[in-house]
Design a protein around this nucleic acid. Structure first.
Lengths: 332, 332
DNA sequence: CTGTTAGCGCTTTCAC
DNA sequence: GTGAAAGCGCTAACAG
């Protein structure tokens, strides 16, 4: 096996305690012996046994992120952000995605029970009651990624959907001069989607624009849903001049319908989206959309977690919102 | 802290050794005491301390996957595949992506040195000499994802680029009746790209079609590169009737150029790609392309790794190639 | 069947 | 400054 402190101790003719001290650079070890030990360690290519240290320190230097899936547009970015911060803190990251054979709750409990990780970042589409209970009574460091429907006692970070939708709507009105703006909603159980709708409504209101009931159409965040919604909007007697889709996928659906009707974006009707997925860059004309800084979410969550980890006692719960920005394309 | 076997031992009035045995279900423990212990364990909500066990067993039940990046089209799928298999084997997965602050080699050495993981899956765009050396002298379980440029002594899995390109070309010729097929290459240092070119050439040859030098154009796997290559091809005196881009990104570039020239796909010129990235589904007309079963790569790599892990002594090195399939769109 | 004992590799009092 | 010794929670001989 690999070299241990015992090996070094033997060669340096000191005790393993001294080696331990010297290697941890702390304590009061005579300069010369410290140097000798460090030299020896280097020579022997010594690396501390992580596991042994963990056993005594009760600290694994591992955090974990649990998410519904590892693929897609957002998750990888989040992981990346977390990984970055973890690395800087000299931590490792275990990624656990719930899949058919594993569910989120199980994952958390498992990790924590086995004292495998020092903390977890949890990303869930929605917070079930079972989960809520666990979180409410939790006694381990955790931060949740998911803006709404949150548990008060648990740190969280989410994106500011309201602000994003508000500023996009405001942009359409005040920078682009649109007044007739329709909105395609996301699934109503989805709290992100709801916030986006509220942001849209608030912006209309603040600009003294009456909202039209039939310009707020249900959608389901899919391309297909966008197509359906869009064709309904464009078959109204009073058609909107701009369509704000609650996500880019549905905006892409609008593109399909609009081009199949022989209409032009943005001349005949403008389309804007939300998310800034990579597809939005490939649409012609390039989609104007709300950018969600995904990696920042990951980084923020990780930073929050380390704040708890380093500052356990007097850490106070925070709920952070990540603000969005507008990516200006040519679709309005 | 959490319950330990000592706690259980006390309550059951037996020694910790017996508890350990009972819990591990092995050995010969009297049925009644075993049942008592297991009942107690459940009552006390006992979970084994992973770290303590690791320290003595010298086995962490963690594998790691190291990749250049966590985002993008492919990596998440690979991770997912690995995760699935890992979970089934009762293992955890640590994901490490090399980023600005960390490089691959460092990661491997680090993990192994700290005896943090039992094995690693390594995915690299290319294998440097430094890495090659490490791999050649490696003494820990590792499997490399990257078909070519491989180290003989190390297990690997990669996709069969040659076969993929061959069958696509063959499909164009024999199913679709094309004879004038141009090819846009990837970067020549990229061995995947080279294999694709070879597959293309081989298919032409086997069908007795002379290849044309100026129909094989350099590209760089980017949209821009695809655009450039495509406009060069379409300004030739003798234009090809079909363009086989070595990846979907470049195929997307072709789409742009072709539509800007007012030409139609596939009537005026057919376009096919390679990779089956999600963008290819959104192109109009839908792109015909070679599907790379990414999650299968991950699964295969993981299975291979566990084969080594479980079968250490007499495992013989394998090099696996994952075959591809054709996704039929409307672009040819 | 079950208990005793000796570690795994390291950190951390407590003495000297 | 440094060593001795205990112990983290568990497993694995070795006895009985």
């Amino acid at each position: 096996m690999s070299v241990t402190i015992k090996e070094i101790a033997d060669r340096a003719h000191v005790s393993i305690a001294t080696v331990s001290r010297a290697l941890n650079n702390n304590q009061n070890v005579k300069k010369s012996t410290k140097e000798l030990i460090q030299k020896l360690a280097k020579e022997l290519n010594y690396t501390p046994n992580f596991v042994a240290r963990t056993l005594v320190k009760k600290k694994t230097n591992v955090i974990s992120i649990i998410l519904p899936e590892v693929g897609g547009e957002f998750f990888p970015e989040i992981i990346k952000g977390v990984d970055q911060i973890a690395y800087r803190n000299n931590y490792h990251l275990v990624v656990a995605s719930s899949h058919s054979e594993r569910n989120t709750v199980e994952s958390i409990l498992n990790f924590m029970a086995q004292s495998l990780v020092d903390g977890v970042i949890l990303m869930v589409p929605s917070i079930s009651n079972q989960l809520k209970e666990i979180l409410a009574t939790k006694k381990f460091p955790i931060v949740v990624i998911n803006g709404y429907n949150k548990v008060e006692s648990v740190d969280s970070v989410g994106i500011d959907n309201f602000q994003g939708a508000y500023s996009m709507t405001d942009y359409l009105i005040n920078k682009k001069g649109y007044k007739d703006i329709a909105f395609i909603r996301g699934p109503s159980i989805n709290s992100d989607a709801e916030q986006r709708k509220l942001g849209y409504l608030a912006a209309l209101k603040d600009n003294d624009i009456e909202y039209q009931d039939d310009w707020i159409i249900n959608g389901d965040f899919t391309i297909k849903g966008g197509e359906l919604a869009c064709s309904r909007l464009l078959s109204l007697i009073k058609k909107p001049k701009a369509i704000f889709a609650a996500n880019d996928m549905m905006a892409a659906g609008c593109y399909k319908v609009i081009s199949s009707l022989g209409l032009k974006i943005p001349e005949d009707v403008a389309v804007v989206g939300f998310d800034h997925i990579s597809l939005s860059e490939f649409l012609t004309p390039k989609l104007t959309t709300v950018h969600v800084p995904t990696d920042e979410i990951g980084r923020t969550a990780a930073k929050l977690l380390f704040k708890i980890l380093n500052d356990d006692e007097n850490h106070e719960v925070q709920h952070r919102k990540i603000t969005t920005g507008i990516i200006i394309g040519e679709s309005c």
